[in-house]
Design a protein around this nucleic acid. Structure first.
Lengths: 254, 254
DNA sequence: GAGTGGTCTAGACCACCTA
DNA sequence: AGGTGGTCTAGACCACTCC
């Protein structure tokens, strides 16, 4: 009966197995830390270490005063590459809200700010701008599905393009949103997009405004729109909760 | 001089600030846990909790017996959507090794297994197969850049297609790899791809074979290849270290 | 009030690395 | 040998939730 593995890992492994086998179903409460400690004959801290291993890998979530619960993973909000397609120009709902509706959720977008700012270096580089002062309009918003913040969206448009359009104000007022304005009022039609996708753990402020439980990474998508001259005219960064949202690319092989 | 925040968080915040300001540069060692404890007048456990907060968000990495070090983040290995393009058919190096070379690294792929298996349900569904027994060939490999495991690749091909080709053996022996075989010997030409992208924390076995430090999420990409009849004929799952690799999609708006 | 997780203390011993 | 992180103990008090 050798047991070379540390007690905390043994407890964590036992719990993980119980979860994966379905013995502990999604939403169910784990034994309390004190219960685990006495059951395994360890100090409470040790049982607690085991639970926090599972928490930091996103398997369970602790609720203060209530217990530790198995996280449930529903279907993801899927941001598809065809969300910019002309096929969808006459849709009733914008892509995010349509996807939420498809899953029986209520989509909602909350505008945070619209400002003329100096672009961060990675943004300036992709828009072929010098990092000269206040050369872009920055629009920030947060998208919700049924009160869960799903992603934060930050859009940058060169001031030289956005100047004089409705894009400098929070309410856009165009049936097709900012892309409608960009095509209709400034003549930039989207012909290609380029999206650079990474994943990482959230920063503390992202944890804050997305209300992220520990152990949930974010998808970080840097989107560039190219116009009919293959020139970049708009950049958007999506920071998405990876446990609530995913990406789908459906593309031709060229 | 109010300090309502817990001491461990205060220490973590101070360290985070030092790192972000560059005061603690990438690769540098943090003060030891005992040093932090005495500096802040807390128990060692408290200082340790602070450090492990940073570790689980991927900012630092602990090395047993040596210290805790600020993680450096180099440029990512970028898997681009054009890696399947006919434009690259005559390239000297396959896409992964070419990308590594571009970054001065040595790319290498290690074959793990080639087996005839019963497909997992999500795979069977996308290949329009019943989950009947052993209906696919499964090929597994791990890709390395300079001794770092960057991603694990699992490919499934329906047995009805792979039967009788070189795909049932580990060494493929075609200049263009498995896609060359699929096009040349079975007549399935790739016309579209569909990639479903999510991110999550790794499972314990992924932590093992990718040698993942804590606090590093993985990108989980489920790739489907469609042939000239828009039928799926091959599926691949990439599980990628998100701190070493990213994705790039460069696609037309249709 | 009883039970839960959140934080903390002040020790201890072990495993690993550097010298 | 001495310093580092890894694990653990046996307590304590606090904050929150539920009844």
């Amino acid at each position: 009966m050798e047991d070379r593995r540390p007690a905390s890992q043994r407890i964590a492994d036992d719990l993980r197995r119980s979860i994966q086998s379905g013995e502990l179903a999604a939403g169910e409460r784990l034994p309390s830390e004190r219960e685990l400690a006495s059951r395994y004959g360890t100090a409470r801290n040790t049982a607690r270490a085991a639970v926090s291993l599972l928490a930091s890998s996103g398997l369970v979530v602790a609720e203060h005063g209530r217990g530790v619960f198995v996280r449930s993973r529903g279907p993801l909000i899927r941001m598809s590459s065809d969300r910019y397609s002309p096929r969808h120009h006459d849709d009733e709902l914008p892509p995010f809200r349509a996807e939420c509706a498809r899953q029986g959720k209520l989509g909602r977008v909350e505008m945070i700010s619209v400002e003329r700012v100096t672009p961060p270096p990675d943004v300036a580089a992709r828009l072929s701008l010098s990092t000269s002062s206040k050369s872009v309009i920055q629009r920030e918003s947060v998208s919700f599905a049924d009160d869960d913040a799903v992603h934060r969206v930050t859009t940058w448009i060169p001031w030289s393009i956005a100047k004089g359009t409705g894009l400098v104000r929070p309410d856009v007022g165009h049936p097709r949103g900012i892309y409608g304005v960009l095509e209709g009022e400034t003549g930039h039609a989207m012909t290609r997009i380029r999206e650079e996708v990474t994943a990482r753990m959230p920063t503390p402020d992202e944890q804050g405004y997305l209300r992220l439980p520990p152990g949930v990474p974010v998808l970080d998508v840097l989107h560039t729109s190219l116009d009919q001259n293959s020139e970049p005219y708009e950049l958007t960064r999506f920071v998405m909760r990876a446990d609530l949202a995913g990406l789908v690319y459906d593309v031709p092989v060229e």
